[in-house]
């Protein structure tokens, strides 16, 4: 990956440089084929960031999805299936947001 545009963990350096093509590029690095189900989550995550200026932790992401898309999708297993084991990190990365602060 281009080290001018991405940090060593693959997060976008200039958040304003994000667009859908960039998302596709990051997703490819993570071996994820973006489907409409993924885009739905990416859109929500970006709106969360725009409103709260926080990259959401998994818990917040799950509550948000539950509220906006219903209880069937608002579960961590649903997120994990789409974005692998540590969904908050991957979702933030693909969505062009900073790494979530509270990762342990």
């Amino acid at each position: 990956m281009d080290s001018l545009r991405f940090d060593t963990e693959g997060y976008l350096k200039d958040l304003d440089a994000w667009n859908e093509n960039v998302a596709l590029e990051i997703a490819k690095q993570e071996n994820i084929q973006l489907t409409p189900a993924h885009w739905e989550i990416i859109k929500l995550t970006r709106s969360f960031y725009a409103r709260h200026q926080l990259s959401p932790a998994t818990r917040a992401l799950v509550s948000l999805i539950k509220r906006e898309l219903g209880p069937k999708k608002g579960r961590s297993v649903y997120l994990m299936k789409l974005f692998s084991g540590t969904p908050a990190k991957i979702v933030s990365k693909v969505s062009g947001l900073p790494k979530p602060d509270n990762c342990i």
Partner: peptide
């Protein structure tokens, strides 16, 4: 600076 109040609005989403 980031807006602290905006982050506080997410408290409920964090449980």
């Amino acid at each position: 600076s980031k807006t602290l109040g905006s982050a506080l609005e997410a408290l409920d989403l964090y449980g």
